[in-house]
Amino acid sequence: MSETKTVLLVEDEPNIMEALRFVLERDDWRVVTHSDGATALGAITDIAPHVVVLDVMLPNKSGFDILRELRAGQNTVPVLMLTARGQQKDRDMAIEAGANRFMTKPFANRDVRDALNTLIAQ
């Protein structure tokens, strides 16, 4: 039996969080959620998930800033960034900040699921 993987969803939109939680739990993921930007970094460190889904627009601190601080602390957890902006400069910014994958809203549930499986396999 394979080890249950933990994903931390950092997203402030409760309905998106609920839908993703449902889909991922069906796929045997252990899902932990967090919605505040200011304390997200501590949550990632404390929970030590296998992968993080990180929204860009969060209360109190942006996803970009959280990711930069995470990488500055030498944390290499795979991060999938979610954003409502899909311009090239936003992608560049995400990659520069240390994102492993970048996904533009609105996304399909299966795209998130596939992306997480790919990140875990790498």
Partner: peptide, 18 residues
């Protein structure tokens, strides 16, 4: 406002797909 619209659409899409 655009962020709000896209976020809401994402939510609808995720829930309706389920």
């Amino acid at each position: 406002s655009l962020h709000d619209v896209i976020t809401t659409v994402t939510s609808i899409r995720s829930s309706s797909s389920i």
